[in-house]
Design a protein around this nucleic acid. Structure first.
Lengths: 244, 244
DNA sequence: CAGTGGTCTAGACCACGGG
DNA sequence: CCGTGGTCTAGACCACTGC
């Protein structure tokens, strides 16, 4: 399947920026110029540029042009904490997953209630993630049986997402997350080797499919000294009434 | 100044959803139908619908239509923690700001270095935020003098954002944030009345203006039991090369 | 003033969903 | 098959920037 022109152009421009053909502070060619360069209409160029804008790669300034933003600006290490993801990207790391539990269960009550679920049968998976033999996160997942009837120990040990998307063809579309800090249970404290504190960072996610159906509830409990979350956001629409 | 049509339409549709004219699960009229309804072209309708999509209000399904999403899905209270913002929205609350310090300073070294700043003169403001006489957050701000030469005690006591945007006409465009959990200093522990733990949630923000210039560095230290962050995100583009 | 990005139009063709 | 949303075009007018 052919990808849309505007996505190809967006990818091409992103590559040119990555390969220093345009560097931070440079202006990209104007929209009419890009339009001629790629032999597409200006609206198509604008869709491509909007992708870069959303990704925080460029900034558009009316009357002037599109500026390349310094990537280092977006997320550089101000603190020295290493997150699970960052540790994960260092290829020498030794990542491991230990299955703590895998069983049939019901979606937790508070979820059933708030989402008014009719089908509540789920698979419960609890996993401990380790990097270099150090425990980092305890993940608990509730996955509706309606969409994923069975999960094997093997599948739980590798990436559930990969299983869902590639093997089952499920299309995951969006998720809402909350991040809080809460006291951990004794079990979790032991699993994460917590001694100095009883606090963990709790990330709760509700995941939905492309057809808007609710699909998975995840509770991740992180060692506080290994947790890091990076957010990049444009200023909210100055509210013309769009805010709920 | 006249707002763009697509924003007016987006606001109108949002209002209709808010006022239950369309409820969760309903399909909005099709794009051609809306196009006729509002007497605009279909592309304009699509821009309006994209606003609702980004805001997490609707979900578009190819071949079917645009479904209204249950707002409760996006962010409902799974835990009972009350964040500063939530407390703030309860109108009976008694919010207060105590200025801890206000002085001239240099932008911290790590910021100067990473952003290669040439002008580093800044105003430093440290503030303690209280709700119902309970300390919640310690905010430290470094604001470049280049854009805001002077900040009075009065201005620091109310909203700095309001001062920047309304009085000075600065246009804030985007920010990058990191969230971590770190041990607090003794001073901060005292200010936040922390006894059970020495950990605080640290949110560091880099704020930029519309013309891409860096403008403000903020370090917020939150009581861990009062911190809550909510995130709603569509699945990242399946990566056609857009990821840096 | 000319050049930039922001909005808008009236068409067109396509891929997908469901009968 | 038809109706849906996804993409694309070749124009147009506007508001803003900078000279």
């Amino acid at each position: 399947m052919m990808r849309a022109k505007y996505l190809q152009i967006a990818a091409d421009l992103t590559n040119k920026i990555k390969h220093k053909q345009y560097v931070a502070g440079d202006f990209l060619p104007s929209e009419p110029a890009l339009s001629e360069l790629y032999n597409v209409s200006r609206e198509t160029i604008r869709k491509a540029l909007n992708e870069l804008l959303d990704a925080g790669i460029i900034q558009k300034i009316k009357g002037k042009g599109s500026v390349v933003i310094n990537a280092a600006r977006i997320a550089f290490p101000i603190s020295n904490i290493e997150s699970f993801d960052e540790l994960n990207k260092q290829k020498q790391m030794n990542a491991a997953t230990k299955i703590l539990e895998l069983k049939d269960a019901q979606m937790p009550f508070i979820i059933r209630k708030h989402l008014s679920l009719t089908e509540t049968a789920a698979t419960y998976v609890a996993r401990l993630r380790l990097i270099n033999h150090e425990p980092i996160v305890v993940d608990e997942d509730y996955i509706l049986k309606k969409y994923v009837p069975d999960i094997s120990l093997e599948q739980a040990k590798s990436s559930l997402y990969h299983y869902f998307e590639h093997d089952l063809g499920l299309e995951i579309d969006y998720a809402s997350k909350t991040i809080t800090v809460e006291p951990a249970s004794k079990d979790v404290m032991e699993q994460l080797h917590l001694t100095d504190t009883n606090l963990v960072v709790v990330v709760r996610s509700l995941t939905y499919l492309k057809d808007t159906s609710f699909f998975q509830y995840t509770i991740s409990q992180h060692r506080p000294d290994k947790f890091k979350f990076v957010d990049f956001a444009h200023r909210k629409a100055k509210n013309g009434g769009l805010i709920l």
